[in-house]
Simulated assay, not measured.
Amino acid sequence: MPLPQPALDLPVPPPRPGQLLARGVCRHLLSHDFVTVEEMTPAPGLRVDVMALGPKGELWVIECKSSRADFQGDRKWQGYLEFCDRFFWAVDADFPVELLPDDMGLIIADHYDAEIVRMGPETKLAAPRRKHLTHRFARHAALRWHGARDPGLGLR
Score class of each variant (00 low, 15 high):
residue 20 L to R: 14
residue 88 F to T: 04
residue 38 E to S: 15
residue 121 P to C: 03
residue 52 A to P: 06
residue 138 A to S: 15
residue 138 A to V: 05
residue 78 Q to S: 00
residue 148 A to I: 08
residue 145 W to A: 15
residue 111 H to L: 03
residue 21 L to W: 05
residue 67 S to I: 02
residue 38 E to Q: 15
residue 112 Y to M: 09
residue 89 W to I: 04
residue 97 V to P: 01
residue 128 P to S: 04
residue 84 C to R: 00
residue 115 E to N: 05
residue 77 W to F: 06
residue 143 L to P: 10
residue 100 L to M: 01
residue 135 H to V: 00
residue 77 W to A: 09
residue 83 F to S: 12
residue 114 A to I: 01
residue 55 P to I: 04
residue 149 R to H: 14
residue 98 E to G: 09
residue 122 E to K: 10
residue 77 W to K: 06
residue 62 I to P: 05
residue 24 G to S: 08
residue 76 K to N: 08
residue 138 A to C: 11
residue 81 L to E: 06
residue 140 H to R: 14
residue 24 G to Q: 07
residue 56 K to D: 11
residue 98 E to H: 14
residue 122 E to H: 02
residue 42 P to T: 03
residue 103 D to G: 03
residue 28 H to T: 00
residue 28 H to P: 01
residue 56 K to M: 12
residue 66 S to I: 09
residue 22 A to L: 06
residue 125 L to Q: 03
residue 54 G to M: 06
residue 125 L to D: 04
residue 54 G to R: 10
residue 32 H to K: 13
residue 154 G to E: 08
residue 112 Y to E: 15
residue 21 L to E: 01
residue 152 G to Y: 03
residue 109 A to K: 08
residue 121 P to L: 12
residue 73 G to V: 09
residue 22 A to C: 14
residue 59 L to A: 06
residue 95 F to K: 10
residue 24 G to Y: 05
residue 152 G to N: 04
residue 142 A to S: 13
residue 38 E to H: 10
residue 28 H to N: 05
residue 86 R to F: 07
residue 129 R to C: 01
residue 56 K to N: 14
residue 128 P to T: 09
residue 142 A to R: 15
residue 57 G to F: 00
residue 32 H to F: 13
residue 23 R to A: 13
residue 35 V to K: 08
residue 123 T to A: 05
residue 69 A to F: 04
residue 76 K to E: 13
residue 133 L to E: 02
residue 117 V to N: 06
residue 109 A to L: 01
residue 38 E to F: 05
residue 107 I to E: 08
residue 154 G to A: 07
residue 139 R to V: 13
residue 68 R to V: 13
residue 38 E to R: 15
residue 125 L to W: 00
residue 80 Y to N: 02
residue 33 D to W: 03
residue 30 L to P: 00
residue 96 P to W: 11
residue 61 V to L: 12
residue 112 Y to P: 00
residue 46 L to A: 10
residue 80 Y to F: 12
residue 117 V to W: 12
residue 65 K to L: 00
residue 34 F to V: 00
residue 151 P to F: 09
residue 93 A to V: 09
residue 54 G to T: 09
residue 82 E to L: 12
residue 95 F to V: 08
residue 136 R to C: 00
residue 47 R to W: 02
residue 129 R to K: 12
residue 131 K to L: 10
residue 152 G to M: 04
residue 27 R to Y: 04
residue 124 K to G: 05
residue 109 A to I: 07
residue 147 G to S: 12
residue 142 A to F: 15
residue 149 R to S: 07
residue 90 A to T: 07
residue 118 R to Q: 15
residue 114 A to G: 03
residue 25 V to L: 09
residue 112 Y to F: 11
residue 46 L to F: 11
residue 79 G to E: 07
residue 138 A to N: 12
residue 28 H to C: 05
residue 103 D to V: 04
residue 43 A to L: 07
residue 103 D to T: 08
residue 133 L to K: 13
residue 153 L to I: 06
residue 102 D to E: 11
residue 120 G to I: 02
